[in-house]
Nucleic acid binder design. Sequence first.
DNA 1: AATCTCTTCAACCGCCTCCGG
DNA 2: TCCGGAGGCGGTTGAAGAGAT
Length: 249
Amino acid sequence: MEGSSLRVRKGAWTEEEDLLLKKCIEKYGEGKWHQVPARAGLNRCRKSCRLRWLNYLKPNIKRGHFAADEVDLIIRLHNLLGNRWSLIAGRLPGRTANDVKNYWNTHLLKKNIDTFTKTSNPKSYQLKSNTKVIKPRPQILSKRNFLVNLDEYNNNNNNNNNNRAETSNNVVLANCGDNHGGYCFPDHDEIMWWENMMMNEKKVDGHQLQCSANDIDESVLDQIMNEDNFGNTMDELFLDEEPWNVFNP
DNA sequence: AATCTCTTCAACCGCCTCCGG
DNA sequence: TCCGGAGGCGGTTGAAGAGAT
């Protein structure tokens, strides 16, 4: 059980601990987090070390106020992706998922409060039931799994050729919406979502993308679809790095 | 000056997925 | 096929500081 071992330190990090961790990462590189506490001589769990490095010590981390264009991008990406903080942060150079999440919760949630309803927990909110957010969850799949899943997907859609997933082009797989016999294939909605996204279509399977409006704001969506504030095209925005993995069958 | 309330954000927790044995 | 360990993620907490009374 993580963190259950005796005498593992918790709480705020000291300068000394930061220094030890930094030296360790500089010497051995990132990764193998289970070895980091021993290598660094830290009395911390691997997760704590990883988090400290990623959110605070890692070079090029940008701190301080979010610029207007960063805020704008966060809002638009959140409308598109929901609470996928790591993906949103991936499009904001120097920002961490934790930073983005905190900023959203402390600054932006209040401005978008009409979109949410309170839950039993006074600190948490959920989307109102009349809104739908499509949450794509791309993942890296093995070739074997891809083919099996694709076959099953197509078998399940034999009556409608329009729904067939094609192998001739790059295909982005969403995470499973359903499980079938121990492996999964994506929801039809998610397949269509990705296919349409890649084709830069504005209409996404009849669903609204924005969670805060009843109708899609075409101008905003156009902007989201075509270019973000850092000059990335939509293809780059979603396909240029992991985990937005493109699989070439 | 003291106390209370609110805000912020670093850190923790629990869960999920992947991967190798 | 199963299982356990590791990496990673999002939700949540709570300490500390800021502001209000």
